[in-house]
Structure formats: C-alpha cells, structure tokens
C-alpha cells in the first residue's frame, strides 16, 4: 500500500489518485502538483473507499483495472455512501472500449478518460471537475 502526499498551490484543493502502475502514478502526480493541486495516491482497490472517506478529497481519479476488485466496484461503493454520493470522480481505463465508458457513466462516473491521455486533457478535466 503506497500513500504519498504532495503539496501544490491550488488553494489546498485535494485530488486522490487510485492507480496501480507506479510510472503512471508518478506522471499524474507530477502533472497535477505542477498545476497546484494537492495529490494523494492509493494503489489498490482494497481500502480505496476508506482512503476516500479518510482523506475527503475534492476529486478522485480512479483506474478501472486495479488488482483485486475493479475500479467499477469501488465507484459503486462510493456512489452508495452518502458522503461521496456527489463527489467528482474521474474514471481512467486502459481498455478504452465503448462498453466500459457506458458502464462507468451508468454507475455515476463524473468523467471518463482513456489511457494514454494527453496531459492537457487530463488537467482540463481535473480543473473542470474539482472547481
């Protein structure tokens, strides 16, 4: 379990990244911190919901392909909990099939992005969702 916290300059707005690929974690963290976001990471599905509840982020970036339970399950749990019912959640997936997008949206994802993504799109999405 890896949890690192980076401090940025965006008025303390907090993004929680739930992702298992170390290199991708590093890339997204760097990108968001550079843009002034406070970034926390969580690298597997177990305890992901607890992490969200504990940290209380303004935005969650959630990978679909996690070891153990899938990102969809985590999303479902978050939407059922009252505290995170309306929390902006950005889903990331490397599969990129239309079916995954439809499932994500039906389960209540706020936004859906396919890997690989352009940094500009990622930042735009985060900015829009978290403010």
């Amino acid at each position: 379990m890896m949890r690192r916290t980076f401090w940025g300059e965006r008025m303390g707005k907090h993004v929680l990244l739930i992702e298992d690929e170390p290199n991708i974690i590093e890339a997204i963290s760097f990108l968001l911190q550079q843009d002034g976001w406070k970034v926390s990471t969580h690298s597997d599905s177990s305890g992901a919901v607890d992490a969200v509840l504990n940290i209380g982020p303004d935005l969650v970036i959630l990978d679909v392909m996690l070891p153990g339970r899938s990102g969809f399950d985590v999303l479902q749990d978050l939407r059922r909990a009252s505290q995170t019912e309306k929390l902006p959640i950005l889903m990331l997936t490397a599969k990129g099939q239309a079916r995954d997008r439809a499932e994500a949206m039906s389960l209540g994802a706020s936004h859906f992005m396919t890997k690989p993504f352009s940094n500009r799109d990622m930042l735009a999405a985060v900015r829009e969702l978290a403010t």
Binding site: E21, K115, F117
Partner: peptide
C-alpha cells in the same frame, strides 16, 4: 496502453 500512457 499502460506503458504507452507513461511514455506519452
């Protein structure tokens, strides 16, 4: 896509 994501 996973390695591609990091690369890009």
């Amino acid at each position: 896509r996973t390695p591609m994501t990091s690369i890009r």
